[in-house]
Design a protein around this nucleic acid. Structure first.
Lengths: 158, 158
DNA sequence: GAAAACGGTGGGTCGGAACCCACTATAGGG
DNA sequence: CCCTATAGTGGGTTCCGACCCACCGTTTTC
């Protein structure tokens, strides 16, 4: 099943294990990597999922709004939207009120895709958080939310 | 102080915020990034710190042991060791018993550097975990340790 | 309307991390 | 001895994410 884990044969330096920073970095990287793999199977990347989610949650909006909301580079968003559009997951139309703007919306196919991606993300969660029981996972989730909201998060990435 | 946070102007899609995977990825990335910056100020990268920590915690050892312990690529380790050696943070000598092996050990300067890096890492922690009080941080740390030990972690990175 | 500001694109750079291969030197087994 | 395996090195390649600039069309301002 998971015979391909040549990971650190465990004996990571305690000095590092005591640093939450390191654990967060390490575990976060795992999560990101695994999720990335799942998305890659569909030819997608993290930003694609983020954009779909934003559209599903907040409804159709101009790219500039997505840019602000997600902190993505406008130029990069253009590419993502382009690809999602070509695949039929989103639709783009120029805003009639302000023709500079391009309004983006999810299609049905897009919603379906997002649902599938969510399922995959949860599957990854189950793998990564395997050592924790239900209650503990909720606690973790709560703490992570607080940390996430607590400002100090880095610019840029999802 | 931290006026340069053009981060997602907050309004990340709830769909994503419900996924621990995403929060872990996002927060982990922040932690990694911030820590990376600190190390960069010294011209170092994460691996350098990991290697120093491993040597400090487990004593002098051959590169092959570091390779197994940390899951780093032998070739990459060679480069890291090289750089650390040149800067005087580690010493390398051929093992007399088996002259293929290169035994690596931290110098005093190396230990001092490691101590400083630890301090910086803790500072980063304080920033990132700002929203949590002492008790919560301990809980988080405990959960992260469990997750980390719980196998399913990805190969490779620190 | 001319000039400045804005939304969106296309094209490209940069840096980091992981990975891989070919090669040297040494060790150890038959 | 010869042959294979092991330890370490040097020199790459590849991939990705972030970032940046020059540019077009549109809108707003005066």
């Amino acid at each position: 099943m998971d015979s391909e884990t040549p990971a650190p044969s465990d004996g990571l330096p305690p000095t590092l294990l005591e640093l939450s920073t390191f654990l967060l970095a390490r575990i976060g990287r795992t999560a990101r990597g695994r999720l990335g793999e799942q998305l890659a199977e569909r030819g997608l990347r993290l930003w694609d999922m983020a954009v779909l989610a934003a559209l599903a949650d907040f409804g159709p909006q101009a790219q500039r709004d997505l840019v602000r909301r997600l902190g993505i580079d406008p130029s990069d968003l253009a590419k993502v939207a382009d690809q999602l559009g070509a695949a039929g997951y989103v639709e783009r139309s120029r805003d009639r009120a302000d023709r500079r703007r391009v309004s983006v919306s999810v299609t049905e196919a897009g919603r379906a895709l997002l649902a599938e991606l969510e399922a995959r993300a949860r599957a990854v969660q189950d793998e990564v958080l395997a050592p924790l029981d239900e209650g503990e996972r909720r606690v973790l989730q709560g703490l992570l939310r607080r940390v996430n909201e607590g400002a100090a998060l880095r610019r840029g990435p999802v």
